[in-house]
Design a protein around this nucleic acid. Structure first.
Length: 423
RNA sequence: GGAGAGAUGGCAGAGUGGUCGAUUGCGGUAGUCUUGAAAACUACUGAUCUUCACGGGUCCGGGGGUUCGAAUCCCUCUCUCUCCGCCA
């Protein structure tokens, strides 16, 4: 959520920045400032009345103590008069504040200066491409065939017990999942991230805190009986650990990692995008979250990207880094790097990580602040990234490492799997 | 699922209609003392809106009501805890 004061101060900058998302919101911004002006006016006027009313009430109290009942009764008339005016102000205040908030909820974060112009994924900027695209042997097949051949994943069994997009991992397939999770968590720990195991279900307030609500209402699984949501990413519970928190400046940066399953309804997806492991309703992911000082947050973002790069290098996967264009960025992000791996049998790039700086956008909703050196509270910056999401990593590992003898496991994973070949 | 209790400042915990934004303790910050530290003592120490400032307003889980006046009374919602039941 943007800050109203920033909208006042940096109106032109914000309009320009939002134009990168192909949004033209100057009218909305002006409306917000207009409403906020009214809010201030109401408060100033009602403060005067409240002050008068409070003062008289105190006098009445004094007079009662002194036993001067008649004088006290005589004073009661004025506050009674003020009451209606005060409650009218209060009512208008509520509607004005609601309107401001509702408008703010519709505005996405302002893209960082470095965000490229563009409308769709083709306009994303390739920052780096690294690793050798493997040349597969003649009979190479996509991962869903490999999963079947080697009995690693049973998609149909998942359909039976739940539905499409809920695979059952079996045998070495299951072991490989566990190995990847442990590997990612260990690497995160080495990089200074403290592991947490959060709830996999969150309440409505948490959904609002990180911005999934109200924007992506239909993307989360909702359980109306208890009004709880299955998490679409560990970002939600882990970032919300710090909701309504005032940190001291020396606690920053705060680094956390978490493995969780992630649940997404993926309404509207179809075709080759959902084949095999490409897009699931339930998948596993290790997420890294950082709360940091505004002055440092972009350096931190680069560190997070470097960390994920390291993971991909250790897994020996060809990857590329994209800087998302304004049209392809998430609602809450100011700058996002996507990491994609090349899946050699499908002959396509698959997104395996998305690393973003949200600046104060989430912190403003979360009321996540720190007490600066000047003793004033200011909003912290929040960042997060996948490190990493499993299914597409698995897809690329299977496809890229297939040989006539079987599927080779990268050396970095062998200590975790206990085997170096799936045959 | 049944019954009961409760929600107050970073934490603990008073306060049951009138200088209560809130006693006190702990914690935190600064100072005195000390070679230094600890202890002790002293002072300060919530958030938020508004204002150039002085100041003023709001906040005792959320919302509403009673009253001249509500942390205190009433209604309602949410959450937490305890006991019983069930159970990994």
């Amino acid at each position: 959520m943007l800050e109203v004061n920033k909208i006042r101060e940096d109106r032109e900058k914000i309009i320009t920045a939002l134009a990168k998302r192909n949004l033209h919101l100057s009218d909305t911004l002006d409306r917000i400032v207009e409403l906020d002006d009214r809010r201030k006016q109401i408060q100033a006027e009602s403060d005067v009345l409240l002050n008068e009313s409070n003062t008289i009430a105190k006098q009445i109290g004094e007079l009662f103590k002194q036993g001067k009942r008649d004088e006290a009764d005589a004073l009661k008339a004025r506050p009674a008069e003020l009451k209606d005016a005060i409650s009218a102000f209060k009512e208008e205040m509520n509607t004005v504040e609601d309107s401001i908030r509702d408008l703010l909820y519709t505005i996405p974060n302002t893209p960082h200066d470095s965000v490229p112009l563009g409308k769709n994924p083709e306009d994303n900027e390739v920052v780096l491409e690294e690793g050798k695209i493997p040349v597969l042997y003649d009979k190479a097949v996509p991962h869903w065939d490999l999963a079947d051949t080697y009995k690693l994943i049973d998609f149909e069994l998942g359909v039976k017990i739940t539905g499409a997009g809920f695979p059952v991992y079996t045998g070495k397939g299951a072991k490989l999942q566990r190995a990847l999770i442990a590997f990612f968590l260990d690497e995160a720990e080495k990089a200074g991230y403290e592991e947490v195991i959060p709830p996999h279900v969150v309440n409505e307030a948490s959904g609002y805190g990180t911005g999934q609500l109200p924007d992506k209402e239909g993307q989360m699984y909702h359980m109306p009986i208890d009004d709880l949501y299955l998490i679409p990413t560990a970002e939600v519970p882990v970032t919300n650990l710090f909701r309504d928190v005032i940190l001291s400046v020396d606690q920053l940066p705060l680094r956390r990692s978490a493995y969780t399953p992630c649940f997404r309804r993926e309404a509207g997806s179809y075709g080759k995008d959902v084949r095999g492991l490409n897009r699931l309703h339930q998948f596993d992911k290790v997420e890294i979250v950082v709360i940091d000082h505004p002055e440092r947050s972009y350096a931190t973002l680069q560190n997070m990207v470097a960390h994920v790069q390291g993971l991909l290098q250790k897994l020996e996967l060809p990857y590329r880094i994209l800087r998302l264009c304004g049209g392809d960025m998430g609602f809450t992000s100011a700058l996002t790097y996507d990491m994609e791996v090349y899946s050699a049998a499908q002959k396509r790039w698959l997104e395996v990580s998305s690393i973003s700086n949200f600046e104060t956008f989430q912190a403003n909703r979360l009321k996540l602040r720190f007490k600066g050196d000047d003793k004033k509270n200011q909003l912290a910056h929040t960042l997060n990234g996948s490190a990493l999401a499993l299914p597409r990593i698995l897809a690329a590992l299977l496809e890229n490492n297939q040989t006539p003898e079987g599927i080779r496991i990268p050396a970095a994973l062998v200590p975790y799997t206990g085997f170096n070949l799936i045959s």
